[in-house]
Every structure is written in structure tokens, then in C-alpha cells.
């Protein structure tokens, strides 16, 4: 049951620290904390809280990508599950609401998994179907309007609720991270996922139930997306089917890639995917605090992402090493 530590990750953690320091430079109160109503407030908490949905998505996404798959439907699944949760919140108890929303997420994952594993459809196409149709399903559930609710039980799961002083979404994310780590690293499952991603045929011949694992991984991704959808709906006390989770699948994929997991499958790190999600959110929060005009948001984001990815590229690292050698030579 030994939990393995992430094998690499220096560049990701360094990037996160650099982005946080940059935030501190543009906004000196960035690391300030204060406690109100038994809850910690501060920009760092905002980063964790606002980053929770993408972090949750990336926990599921990293497993899918490790299997050489991709799940484009997570944003739409968020919208579906948020819509279900918000529609039921005022008329049903919290366990029923959660069961319905999480169940819907698992069902969406099952659909994706069956398309990919049983019918053999390319993952990008298979999940594209639900990405497009899913938002429509969510709009059907909400009838195209923003469904609001006033249930304090569900609202507790959003940014306004807190557990041990931390916003509930942060606690849920860490809980999900711990659970996922326990399942994939505490057992041989992680190894089987990496093997399937590396070479599905060889893995099948070696006796790994690749189809079952594929379906299970897509279902886990659906579950993570459902949780993210519940958090997003609980946060704004309503479900906005048109906008909830919109384009977040791309942020989740980016988080996984920043976390060093290859899109060609194989080796993966769940922790670093979450670090990737936090880098993205730290950047977003920093831009909001900086007072830059909004037209520059995407440019700033693109430059930082490029820098983080370049720092991970072995070739660029090689060049820097070469530069170091040159410098040493000129010095001697």
C-alpha cells in the first residue's frame, strides 16, 4: 500500500511558485490572510477555491490521457450534473441530489467508455459527441434558463460553505485527489493504466482487462466532472447550462499537459495535474488582481503557458545546458 511520490515535478512546482510570486508583485496583499466567520479569506484561498472545478476535472482527465484517450465531454457533463443538482435541490434531500447528479456523471462516463472500449471509436470523436449533445441535454433540463435554488445544504458545497476554515470545494478536491491516489497508486491499477496507455495490445495479451479499465477510467472522469458541476452550481446558487463548464475541458487538458503527462499515454501524475490546474488558476487570479485591461488576459495566459511548457521540453533544457557549458568555457 505504499504511496509513491511523484517522480518528477520540479519544473511544475517551480512554475507555480513563480506565478504566485508574480501575483505577489502585482498585488502586494496577495499572501494576506484573515479569518471571518470561522473561514479563511485571502487571494491564495481564492486560487484554491476557483481552481477546484478544473482541478477536479484534471484528476479524471489525467487517467483518461494516461490511457492514450481524451475526454472532451467533461465541460458538458459539468453542465448536466449541475443542472440536475440545481433542479432537485429545493425539492429533495442532499443525499438524493448528490446521488442523482453523481449518478448522471457516472452514466455519461459509461457512455463514453462504451463508445471507446467496446465500439472502438477514436476517443476524441467519441467524447465529442457528448461534448456537443451534453450541453443540449443540460439546456433541456434547465429549459434554457438559469435554474436557481435556495437550499443551504447544496449551497454548503459551493464557495460559501467551509470545512475546517477552508472553502468546501477545496476540501472536496483534496479528498478526491487523495481517493484517486489511493486507488491508482495504492493498488496495481495505476500500473495497469500506464501499461494500457503505453501498449494496449501487449497489455491485453499480458492479461490486463484493458476494456474494463478503459470504461472504468472514463466513468471516473465522469464522476470527477459531476463533482465539479455540483461545486460550480452550488457556488452561484444556480445552474447556468449555457456557460457552466464551458471550455473547461481544454483547461483540464492543459492542466494535465502542464503536469507533464504525455498525450500519447503511459506515465502520468495525478498530483502534478492538480498542480497544473493551480498554475492556470493562479495565473487567472493574478490577471484579475493586476488591473491589466481584459483584452490582454489571453495573451498573458498564452505567454505563461508557453514558458511553462518550454521549461519542460527536454530539447530546450538541453540548450540551456549547452549554454551553461559555453558560459563555463568562456569563464575558464
Amino acid at each position: 500500500m505504499a504511496l509513491r511520490l511523484p517522480r518528477i515535478g520540479t519544473s511544475q512546482v517551480a512554475a507555480l511558485i513563480l506565478v504566485l510570486l508574480a501575483n505577489w508583485m502585482v498585488s502586494p496583499q496577495f499572501f494576506d490572510f484573515h479569518i471571518r466567520d470561522g473561514r479563511v479569506f485571502g487571494s491564495v484561498i481564492d486560487v484554491l477555491n476557483r481552481g477546484a472545478p478544473v482541478a477536479l476535472l484534471s484528476i479524471g482527465m489525467v487517467l483518461v490521457i494516461a490511457m492514450r484517450g481524451i475526454d472532451l465531454s467533461v465541460g458538458a457533463v459539468m453542465a448536466i450534473c449541475g443542472a440536475i443538482a440545481a433542479s432537485l435541490a429545493d425539492s429533495h434531500t442532499l443525499p438524493v441530489v448528490l446521488a442523482a447528479a453523481l449518478g448522471a456523471g457516472l452514466l455519461c462516463g459509461l457512455w463514453n467508455g462504451l463508445l471507446v472500449a467496446v465500439l472502438g471509436i477514436q476517443p476524441i470523436v467519441a467524447t465529442l459527441i457528448l461534448m456537443v449533445a451534453g450541453r443540449g441535454i443540460a439546456q433541456l433540463i434547465t429549459e434554457g434558463r438559469i435554474v436557481t435554488f435556495s437550499s443551504p445544504d447544496l449551497a454548503f458545497l459551493g464557495g460559501s460553505g467551509s470545512v475546517l476554515g477552508l472553502p468546501t470545494p477545496v476540501v472536496l478536491t483534496f479528498g478526491m485527489l487523495a481517493l484517486t491516489l489511493l486507488i491508482v497508486r495504492g493498488t496495481a491499477l495505476g500500473l495497469m493504466i500506464e501499461a494500457t496507455g503505453g501498449n494496449p495490445r501487449a497489455s491485453a495479451l499480458a492479461g490486463i482487462g484493458t476494456k474494463l479499465i478503459t470504461v472504468a477510467v472514463y466513468m471516473w472522469s465522469g464522476l470527477c466532472a459531476a463533482l465539479a458541476g455540483i461545486v460550480a452550481a452550488a457556488d452561484i446558487l444556480g445552474a447556468d447550462a449555457n456557460n457552466a463548464g464551458l471550455w473547461l475541458e481544454l483547461d483540464a487538458i492543459l492542466a494535465v499537459v502542464i503536469g507533464g503527462t504525455s498525450l500519447f499515454g503511459g506515465r502520468f501524475s495525478v498530483v502534478l495535474a492538480v498542480v497544473g490546474a493551480l498554475i492556470i488558476q493562479a495565473m487567472n487570479t493574478g490577471i484579475l488582481l493586476s488591473g491589466f485591461p481584459p483584452e490582454t488576459n489571453l495573451v498573458v495566459k498564452a505567454v505563461v503557458v508557453l514558458a511553462v511548457l518550454l521549461a519542460q521540453s527536454p530539447r530546450v533544457a538541453g540548450h540551456f545546458a549547452g549554454l551553461g557549458v559555453l558560459l563555463n568555457r568562456s569563464r575558464s
Binding site: S27, Q29, G42, S43, D46, R50, N284, T285, L288, L289, G291
Partner: peptide, 9 residues
Amino acid sequence: EVMESFIKA
């Protein structure tokens, strides 16, 4: 999200 940052800033 934006308002939270405005309040902090």
C-alpha cells in the same frame, strides 16, 4: 470570481 479579486485588490 472577478468581484472576489476586486474586493481583495
